[in-house]
Design a protein around this nucleic acid. Structure first.
Lengths: 213, 213
DNA sequence: GTCTATATTGAGATAGAC
DNA sequence: GTCTATCTCAATATAGAC
């Protein structure tokens, strides 16, 4: 609700410390279960400081969301100027997105819990916009690839979902089983499965003709 | 914490009403943000009734989780006796899982928010066990399929993740965009993309040789 | 088993001094 | 801008009557 400090900034970096602290707390306990007290204590300040800079608990949450989406938007923006085959460009963006996520696990967990989970008293914000933008980007590349003879796809959406599914699964593994997390190479192989398919040549034409066991 | 009623059950169905009410509230507001008061009011009872039957807010949550996992376990159990090609069996189980999810959206959202999101003061419980069991089931079918010449896969895990990713994406769409939700047929086509791949024949051998644009 | 009434704790947020 | 001290409210949980 409040604007950034205007007159004198005696404690530079308070805002950043508060953001970092909020990410950490939201990540460990969830938005609703994390208290303002815990956030400010970890940031080494008192409650009024948070309310002065961000207006409310929801205010600091929204600031986090905006920060995350700006980063993603920038990635998409740069990717729309990338070069190469459709597959190259998709693989490149997926690698960058995965890398960004890997570097922002706590923030991603917080965002996901609100986007996919129940609203915990905070609005979903512009998360939809970002999701749609990403989907459209992938779909465009797929259409281009098909027109260029690079892909054979009946329905662009199907391929889009299969690809996004592969990326999501890598992210989710990172979130809930860091020990089993996929590497960049692993992800590229999984994505490669989608591009190439796993059915053997003989098994493909007669779609359900594989032998019984 | 408490056992089911032992002596006299004057209000049959209270437990079920409480469970249903809890699912609904957890779904709409999240575990932490949903109050016991709201649960019991929707169930038409008072607070002590909940504490009598389930011991605590966490107790009723755990009861929900157990209920959900039992259903999933049963699905897996039946699927391990299914017949047909590996692809047939995988597609069949995916269809059943997707159907179960579609019929349990609120509960699934609650489970996911705890499994993938921050712990909101409740333990994750046995969710891991179920996930691993599902992954192992798929992996087994893939190995069988490869041994039978049905698939050509270098790394079974890659195909497993691509397939599970497709199922996840269908579930997640259902959760956060019911309007865009995939049908059973849609899901089978997306899964089909993973089985068959989308790369055209000429584009496949030289993996990065597609033309520049 | 289910109620009314209440104990107790901690939450989000703010007033006002400096 | 940041503090101390405090307001207000709603949360989980329980005591004890019926």
């Amino acid at each position: 609700m409040n604007k950034p400090p205007e007159k004198a900034p005696p404690d530079p970096g308070v805002r950043e410390r508060l953001l970092a602290s909020a990410i950490d707390c939201f990540d460990r306990k969830g938005y609703a279960a994390c208290s303002v007290r815990e956030i400010v204590e970890a940031a080494g300040v008192t409650k009024p400081v948070l309310y002065y800079h961000y207006g409310s608990k929801e205010g600091i949450f929204n600031a986090l969301m905006r920060q995350a989406m700006d980063q993603f938007d920038e990635l998409l923006e740069r990717a729309s100027h990338s070069e190469g085959s459709a597959r190259d460009r998709i693989e490149k963006l997926f690698g960058e997105v995965f890398d960004l996520f890997k570097r922002s696990i706590p923030l991603v967990r917080v965002m996901n819990s609100i986007y996919y989970g129940p609203p915990q008293g905070v609005p979903r914000g512009d998360a939809d916009r970002v999701h749609f933008a990403f989907q459209e980007w992938v779909k465009k590349r797929l259409v281009e690839g098909r027109n260029a003879g690079e892909f054979k796809i009946a329905k662009t959406e199907d391929a889009m979902w299969a690809l996004i599914g592969a990326l999501n699964v890598a992210t989710e593994l990172e979130l809930c089983h860091p020990d089993l997390a996929l590497t960049q190479k692993d992800l590229q192989r999984v994505v490669g499965v989608v591009f190439d398919g796993i059915a053997s040549e003989e098994g493909r034409a007669p779609r359900r003709a594989a032998k019984r066991r």
